[in-house]
């Protein structure tokens, strides 16, 4: 029951008691469970609150669609978005002003991989024709959209596969292939690297895809947006505050870096290609 209560309450950090404005809201889609999200991002919220002199509140949407709607309607001050939602929202509501993007282990991009079991005969993506393929959530950039694009580029349409399924998460994709229910799967390269074991091998690797971003409401004053960007860009591994805040979010997160809309052009191309197929 606790996650649901927290979802309604949010978290208040009353560092600057004197501030009279309403709290600044950081919104997330539920890509992890609520409890985990709050635990991961509370230090960041605390950091921003201190830097901006305002209360900062974490809000987690009930689902992806709600998050997209709230962000699109400028009802979230600072919003976490995956690359794809960013592109989708931009197309539907107009581009939201970018703050920073994530940098993992010094790279502001990540890739996804299509993998098979170590002893599988497949050598190229085209060999997956007539095989069984596992994807992650249909909305997931790295485990569904990008790999489907890779397949299509290699000339394999979904209907060319013997079977394909969208599993609940990356781990299921890995296990589904390892246990033999599927011949190939697609997950984020990072996940694969952490968990693959020696029973799986990479068949193909995607191009670099720009990481997650933080955006602001479209109507936020530019000065405030700059303060927030500054506060985020200042976080560095190695200094006490940065280490604490970044470390809480992810071991691999090395900081937030500058971003521009053009970083997502590749993703736009990909989504143009795959979304009609996925929605179909």
């Amino acid at each position: 029951m606790r996650p649901i209560i927290l979802l309604a309450l949010g978290l208040t950090l009353a560092f600057s008691a004197g501030a009279q404005e309403r709290p600044l809201v950081i919104g997330f889609m539920p890509y992890l469970n609520v409890e985990d999200l709050i635990r991961k991002y509370s230090p960041l919220a605390g950091h921003l609150s201190r830097e901006l002199g305002r209360e900062v509140e974490i809000r987690v949407a009930r689902n992806y669609a709600e998050h997209i709607r709230l962000v699109g309607e400028d009802r979230i001050d600072i919003a976490f978005l995956g690359g794809s939602p960013y592109v989708v929202i931009g197309e539907e509501y107009g581009n939201k002003p970018l703050l920073v993007r994530y940098e993992f282990e010094g790279k502001p991009t990540f890739t996804s991989v299509i993998f098979v079991r170590t002893n599988d005969q497949a050598q190229r993506l085209a060999d997956l024709r007539g095989r069984k393929m596992a994807f992650g959530n249909a909305n997931s950039t790295l485990s569904s959209q990008v790999p489907l694009y890779m397949l299509m580029e290699a000339g394999v349409m979904p209907e060319d596969l013997a079977r394909y399924a969208h599993l609940r998460n990356h781990e299921n994709v890995l296990l589904g292939v390892e246990f033999g229910d599927f011949d190939a799967g697609a997950v984020a390269e990072e996940v694969f690297r952490e968990k693959r074991g020696d029973r799986l091998r990479v068949l193909a690797r995607s191009p670099e895809i720009s990481t997650h971003v933080f955006v602001t409401r479209a109507d936020m004053p530019e000065r405030q947006r700059a303060s927030i960007r500054r506060a985020l860009l200042d976080l560095k591994r190695g200094d006490g505050e940065g280490e604490r805040v970044l470390g809480a979010i992810s071991d691999k997160l090395t900081g937030f870096v500058a971003v521009e809309d053009g970083d997502y052009d590749l993703l736009r191309t990909i989504l143009d290609r795959v979304l009609p197929v996925l929605q179909h």
Binding site: A134, A165, L167, N172, L175, G176, F182
Partner: peptide
């Protein structure tokens, strides 16, 4: 049957 190995585990 749902291919939810993680849940099974």
């Amino acid at each position: 049957l749902r291919n939810d190995y993680a849940e099974a585990r």
